[in-house]
């Protein structure tokens, strides 16, 4: 409640052009947006691009933000749409590569020598986690966004509906199908 109030104040100030308040909002949300984008795209570099683009959009279209809506819902909507666009624009071959790649997070950027970015597989000690991440990566985009918002961002079904601008019944169906898909993928490996 206190956090919500604080956030609402920041949003109000930032909308009036207060740069300090905007910087605080960036600080509050940059990691959440980054993780969302990283899970959606499985690429660090692209995820950072999405974070940057999301905040620029927020700044540019602040006049369109309706303050009856939660700020988080609004910013997640912008970020998710940017991710979905990005996935659509990807070449199909890249898509296949991404699915078959056994080292998560590996791509052209991470292979550049001297780059300080590290593929996530180095952080992931457990095979189980790696398997789960790969399973999520293999989800079709429309299930992926729902699953990520549900499990990573801890959003309720209603909130996911608000973010993706779709009825709760659709969200439910997608959560069920996504869950079923993941269960089948993990059934003989993890359990």
């Amino acid at each position: 409640m206190v956090v919500d109030h604080f956030e609402a104040r920041l949003v109000k100030l930032a909308r009036k052009g207060d740069q300090g308040a905007f910087a605080e909002l960036v600080d509050l949300y940059k990691d959440k947006i980054f993780h969302l984008a990283y899970r959606m795209l499985s690429n660090r570099h692209e995820a950072e691009d999405i974070v940057q683009e999301t905040f620029l959009r927020v700044y540019k279209s602040f006049h369109r933000y309706d303050d009856k809506q939660k700020f988080s819902t609004w910013i997640y909507r912008i970020a998710t749409n940017l991710c979905i666009d990005r996935l659509r624009k990807r070449k199909p071959s890249y898509y296949l590569d991404a699915e078959m790649n056994d080292q998560e997070g590996m791509d052209g950027y991470t292979l550049i020598p001297g780059d300080e970015r590290t593929p996530e597989s180095e952080y992931l000690l457990s095979e189980t986690q790696e398997m789960i991440h790969q399973a999520i990566e293999g989800l079709p985009a429309k299930y992926k966004s729902v699953i990520i918002l549900r499990y990573l961002q801890d959003l309720s079904l209603q909130e996911i509906g608000d973010v993706l601008d779709m009825p709760v019944t659709t969200v439910k169906t997608r959560v069920h199908r996504g869950r079923e898909f993941l269960r089948k993928k993990l059934e003989n490996k993890v359990f």
Binding site: Y38, R39, V51, T128
Partner: peptide
């Protein structure tokens, strides 16, 4: 498992 560990922007 989906929760972020050490990886950050």
């Amino acid at each position: 498992a989906i929760k972020p560990r050490s990886i950050t922007a």
